[in-house]
Nucleic acid binder design. Structure first.
Length: 466
RNA sequence: GGCGCGGUAGCCAAGUGGUAAGGCAGAGGUCUGCAAAACCUUUACUCGCGGGUUCGAUUCCCGCCCGCGCCUCCA
């Protein structure tokens, strides 16, 4: 079956077809760099990475733009408190975010753009809206008048007629004509940073950066727009108003939203003390691959309740796959090929692909790999796995890992290199042959202390990094 | 109150109108100088509850209960 995604706009799973042949124009709402991102943010980034990789596998050329929000209330507040400029303050967190992405083996989008470098595009977007009568000015700020945009609410499926029974309203924003209206351009306030523009001195509202930058780099109609589910309203709804108000054309064809990562079944927040950064987990000794696995294994549209038990389980599950690969690389197989196993490899590959095509069902895809691993292990135990079956097994693992990116071990700084380890392993084998168990056990313990595990198998000794 | 997502074995989780993938944990076993590691076997007559449609529902419809999120510049 074809590649298909759940589209928030239509609330249905739809076949995916880009507007322009094999090119996919995709925009991602990246982080607001006022602090280190947490693993919930990274889960969303990881969904985007997997989406990228799968689109590429399916033969599409990506034009993927991700923004960095580097001007915003918390950034301004924190930067001013620390006596830093905005860019001085945000640079450290932007850098940290990019490092986190690399640690988790995420690809960089084709283009990463910063809000503060696109003020002119935002001003132009606001002007286009004003020209069409969608805006009004109050106390120097420019607002979008929602009443003038009838389709407002089509993404979040909110009907605004008799709205707001139990919702809270922000009473500070008394200058708005309608509580639902949102700000496009904020008038300069106090000694906050500002830009002198045709809209007057001030700074952009949050939503305008994304519509302006997305259209600048990807055109008026995008294929895919992604983000966390909490951005659906109001952020993405407002992006639609800004873009479609200005162009009169459909802004985004497929809206994909990642569900939240939860801790104790609650959204992460600092006040609850359930806020983890990638650095926190690495300090506790979890590997980047185990974290990547844990964040990938639950399909992106499901909530993922993060627990350390779950992370440990992911680590063990990942070991199973790595052990299989190691066995494939080190065991001795008889000549020939087993037709039934070839069949199993083909089936596993097809099931993996079908799972991924079905709105990136990573759980199903993963299941297909594990099923093959079990079948192959049984065959190896029985001596029925043949040399001729190895290429297919490798191909399946490579195919899986091209998307999941978890099989290679991240080596600690200062770790022994392979040759060094092999020399010790060989020395131990010699000692064992000579029945010098004292020396052989000594080497085994020494390697264990360095995180190297030795495994004696019928085909000889193999080793791996823990 | 409105909108949205979900409730499947101890935990995580896939799935289909015809009688429940996979992973972790647990139990048993194989291998081994000892061990470690690894591998294998095994665990839901049942899919939140109550109705309905159907020859047949976990899967469709209705109602209810429970959890989570959004409705405040939160991924």
């Amino acid at each position: 079956m074809a590649l298909r995604f759940y589209n928030t706009l239509t609330q249905r799973v739809e076949d995916f077809t880009p507007l322009d042949g094999k090119t996919v124009r995709m925009y991602t709402c990246g982080p607001t760099v006022y602090h280190y991102v947490h693993i919930g943010n990274l889960r969303t980034s990881l969904f985007q990475d997997i989406l990228r990789r799968w689109l590429a596998y399916r033969g599409y050329t990506l034009m993927h733009v991700m923004n960095i929000t580097d001007v915003e209330d918390k950034i301004i507040r924190n930067a001013m408190q620390q006596g830093k400029s905005l860019s001085e303050y945000t640079a450290q967190y932007e850098q940290a975010f990019l490092e986190d992405m690399a640690t988790l083996r995420m690809q960089r989008p084709e283009r990463i753009v910063r809000a503060t470098e696109h003020i002119e595009e935002m001003v132009a977007n606001v002007e286009a809206l004003t020209a069409k009568g969608f805006t009004y000015v109050a106390e120097g700020s420019v607002y979008f008048r929602i009443a003038s945009f009838p389709s407002y609410g089509k993404l979040s499926h909110i009907h605004f007629e008799g709205q707001m029974a139990g919702a809270r309203l922000d009473m500070d924003e008394y200058e708005k004509d309608d509580a639902r209206d949102f700000v496009l351009w904020k008038a300069r306030k106090g000694d906050e940073p500002f830009w002198d523009t045709r809209l007057g001195p001030g700074r952009p509202g949050w939503h305008i950066e994304c519509s302006a930058m997305a259209m600048k780099y990807l055109g008026e109609t995008l294929d895919i727009h992604t983000g966390g589910i909490d951005l659906t309203f109001p952020h993405h709804e407002n992006e639609i108003a800004q873009a479609e108000g200005a162009t009169g054309k459909q802004f985004v064809r497929y809206w994909l939203h990642a569900e939240h990562l939860l801790v104790d079944w609650q959204k992460m927040s600092k006040s609850l003390g359930n806020f983890y950064t990638l650095r926190d987990l690495l300090e506790k000794g979890y590997s980047p691959e185990a974290i990547r696995y844990q964040l990938s294994q639950v399909p992106y549209r499901n909530k993922l309740n993060f627990t350390f038990d779950g992370l440990a389980a992911s680590s063990t599950a990942l070991d199973r796959l790595r052990n299989f690969k190691l066995r494939l690389d080190t065991a001795k197989f008889a000549e020939g090929a087993n037709a039934a196993l070839s069949e199993a490899a083909i089936k596993a590959r097809a099931a993996f692909d079908e799972g991924m095509d079905a709105d990136l069902n990573t759980a199903e895809a993963l299941g297909a790999v594990f099923e093959y691993v079990r079948i192959a292990n049984i065959a190896m135990d029985a001596g029925e796995f043949k040399v001729g079956n190895t290429p297919q097994a490798h191909a399946l693992l490579d195919h899986f890992d091209a998307i999941f990116q978890v099989l290679a071990v991240t080596r600690a700084a200062g770790a022994k290199d392979d040759a060094e380890i092999q020399a010790l392993v060989d020395e131990r084998t010699q000692a064992k042959k000579a029945r010098n168990f004292k020396r052989s056990d000594e080497i085994r313990d020494q390697l264990a202390a360095d995180g190297i595990v030795l495994e004696d198998t019928k085909d000889g000794v193999r080793w791996k990094r823990k």
